[in-house]
Design a protein around this nucleic acid. Structure first.
Lengths: 376, 376
DNA sequence: CTGTTAGCGCATTCAT
DNA sequence: ATGAATGCGCTAACAG
């Protein structure tokens, strides 16, 4: 179809030279499974190639007649503009990269969902990368993303050591989600972890608890450090102190939560409530509680961070802090979009870290402490 | 900086067009925040542009000296090849599209993980799309993926009506995962649902159960239809029959599982075991069981499809069918890769549907029926 | 081996 | 309002 130049006469001048097509072309059936270009459309519509471009982009005004003809041609050829070529030309790919440490952690799919929906609404594609909690892999991903010429990146980093902005911030717009590297003071969106943890802890305190332990996670991550900070503030404000044995930090895997839980429960003065700083820790803790047959919330109240479907169907139903995961994703994309399109930043907030409020879902795993915990 | 070519005002000769290069650009300023092209590298290395291309692609042999020089130049300029340009030239983007119905459903992140890892290992990027269980959205995604010139697509469809292959199979290589549309007999990978369901059901039967109910889900989806089929076969083989009231199908949301569970448990002859065909149904069922204070597994055994972290920490720990999610993703990519690169198919298997075996994780939610359920 | 050159498909001045 | 021409950055013949 496309090789039959010369028919229309007008275009068949020197143009034939540019088209050094060899007649090796096997016969093509009806132009069905063929990929068509703007030229094909132009020819069929009897207009120039730039007119086609014009109607596609709506740029200059094109007469209704020709517009119509072009549309019909596109239709009949089932023409789809080649975004690759377009990207090369305009220098923007309308694609963003999203790199997360572990898509298997239920927290991330939800923020990805927020990103994805907002992105597609704005015509952006999402290139997904999983760093598997491995800084080296993350770096590699960042590099290939750059090579693929993404317009921007949303990153939930897997590395606690900084140097992020030095590394890539100037290569393309970058916004951090969830975990925010030290030193970063803008282009980031996360949960207001301090506030959330404080609220959660206060809930425990209001219930009458005085001996509250915390499974704090890895304090090298901003998220966990902040949650502990919020916890401490609430405790301090209530005049309660935190025995060293009640403060467990370090790693953040399920097993860590399990072991820490076991040790906590075996203390001569066990806590009457435990706050777990993320979902994995929480599950581990729950397992310890269940294994030691400690009634919950009867003997120990349990409160966790991250709220998933399971939490409300667990037995007992779990009180937990629900992060605004979807909104984190959405906001992150919007922040990135503003940078990518150089929009005037609508307010100071955009040039600083954006903190979203979490919600405390009070269910059955938290209750007033047993009598021995209530005295004083 | 690189646009300072306009010395000649007008292009003198057509012949000179290709030679618009001017050696005016000698000093390489801190080549830091600038994007460099192969030309910059070539100039710095003192070689031709195609030599640079050659060392990058390793295509023809380049003398070690020049190779070295090129590498140094690339290094010092921090040069990253522009994949967009490359894609346009070679006609392949080294990108695949992945569209899932709901990334929030824990099943998909795991298969995505399998896809992602295999893809990156082969140098492919993954464009993620979430159709939100909406056929229209899915279609739209397929269309933009085509426009973005992905080399292939892995699709977990959200539409039960067929016409998939007619629609897109010839536009680009396509592999189905999980849900397989009716009529598709190749380019698909999924769990061997019939076998898995049969095995699970047999486990219940072996335990001594005779009154087994099933929450079958939406039978328009191949996955659910097959699971029911497997269930039926096992029952039939054991000479057990399935009262109509024990077979619940239709929708597959959590609430459906909850309501069905309630009704089942309220029957004059309630089942002694229930098989839930997916994770949401299972959670709903569990909730009903817990709410009615029916001891599990004491009074009713529960077995589910899909195995997530939570399952093994639930109380009681859940017996469930673990699908080979990661492998499904990995295999799907490999199947797609074979098609994209036109590799000779290693065996008939590739040209048919690939079914992976699931694993039955026996835990605590299944046990022999109570005495009143054991008689005949 | 190495350099020159012609486009890939599209957006965009700049002439009409 | 419309069309011819130019090049985005790169690869692949084809020359030398």
């Amino acid at each position: 179809m496309r090789v039959s130049v010369g028919e229309q006469g007008k275009v068949a001048k020197k143009k034939a030279i540019g088209k050094t097509r060899k007649p090796e072309r096997e016969e093509v059936p009806a132009g069905d499974n063929t990929k068509h270009t703007m030229r094909d459309v132009a020819r069929l519509a009897g207009v120039s190639i730039s007119t086609v471009s014009a109607v596609i982009n709506g740029t200059p005004k094109v007469s209704p007649v020709r517009t119509q003809r072009v549309y019909e041609a596109m239709q009949s050829l089932d023409y789809q503009p080649d975004q690759i070529a377009r990207s090369l030309k305009v220098g923007r790919s309308r694609t963003i990269g999203v790199v997360v440490p572990d898509i298997t952690n239920a927290f991330y799919p939800e923020v990805i969902r927020g990103i994805e929906e907002a992105a597609h609404k704005s015509g952006y594609g999402v290139l997904l990368c999983d760093s598997n909690e491995d800084p080296a892999r993350e770096k590699e991903h960042l590099s290939t993303l750059f090579s693929r010429r993404v317009d921007g990146v949303i990153l939930a980093c897997s590395d606690t050591s900084a140097a992020y902005d030095v590394l890539v911030a100037r290569r393309f717009p970058l916004v951090f989600v969830d975990r925010i590297p030290k030193g970063v003071r803008q282009n980031a969106v996360s949960t207001n972890n301090i506030k959330a943890a404080r609220m959660a802890t206060r809930h425990l305190i209001d219930l009458g608890h005085k001996r509250i332990a915390v499974l704090a996670g890895d304090l090298n991550f901003s998220t966990h450090a902040e949650r502990l900070e919020g916890f401490k503030r609430a405790m301090h404000q209530a005049g309660l102190d935190i025995p060293e044995a009640y403060l467990r930090s370090g790693n953040l895997q399920l097993e860590d939560g399990y072991e820490a839980g076991l040790e906590l429960l075996k203390l001569k003065h066990p806590p009457t409530a435990v706050f777990a700083s993320n979902n994995k820790l929480l599950v581990g803790l729950l397992r310890a509680v269940s294994e030691m047959h400690v009634p919950c919330p009867g003997k120990v109240s349990v409160l966790g961070f991250d709220d998933h479907v399971w939490n409300q169907h667990f037995n007992p139903r779990l009180t937990s802090v629900a992060q605004p995961t979807y909104d984190i994703g959405r906001c992150a994309f919007e922040m990135l979009l503003a940078r990518m399109e150089d929009q005037p930043l609508p307010g100071k907030q955009w040039s600083s870290i954006m903190l979203l409020d979490a919600q405390l879902k009070i269910r059955e795993s938290t209750a007033p402490p047993a009598s021995d915990g209530r005295k004083s």
